[in-house]
Design a protein around this nucleic acid. Sequence first.
DNA 1: TTGACAGGCAAGTGGTTACTTGCCTATTGT
DNA 2: ACAATAGGCAAGTAACCACTTGCCTGTCAA
Lengths: 96, 96
Amino acid sequence: MAGDVFRALADGTRRTILDELAERDGQTLFELCARLTNRHGLGSTRQAISQHLDVLEAAGLIEVRREGRYRFHHLRTEPLEHLADRWLDPPGSNER
Amino acid sequence: MAGDVFRALADGTRRTILDELAERDGQTLFELCARLTNRHGLGSTRQAISQHLDVLEAAGLIEVRREGRYRFHHLRTEPLEHLADRWLDPPGSNER
DNA sequence: TTGACAGGCAAGTGGTTACTTGCCTATTGT
DNA sequence: ACAATAGGCAAGTAACCACTTGCCTGTCAA
């Protein structure tokens, strides 16, 4: 549902996670934790980040690929593509 | 801030309010209450809607124009226009 | 000027959410 | 085998958020 996407994006930490994955896709949980701390000044625990990733996955914004003891996170931009189209038709003119 | 926009859009009632204003701009609080109840099956009180409108205004998604004892609400689509661009560059190739 | 109409203010409540803490499981290198 | 690494589960807490309730202000028509 689209509501899940907006709810997922409503949190600043989650938006930063997407930023990180947009810059370097396929990071593991530990990589993300390290980079969020070092580069973005976020001091969240591993569990907190893990829970954020769950929310992002439920919203379809990331895809999780398990491999051995690693867990790679991939950005999925599809749900982001026509997010606000619902309110943006006027300019053209042809409503359905 | 962009975070305010996502937070504002995270609520279903607020998204429906934007739908209503997209269809018929410049409604008053009472009009909105009536139409949300009758057409969208939402049973919220006037105050609840009023608070939602405050949030939408704070996010820059509506503009409020006072006139006599009426208060007209207008949709502002500008904050919606490049909402997700932040994560959508990859396809092209030319980062800033 | 009085009453009806449109809206505002503010305190309180219940549910949700972000985050922590503590412990557990699975995979891998030596 | 064993320890280190990568991650998972679940209960508890504090803050936030949507919504209600009760009362108040301002505008207009009769």
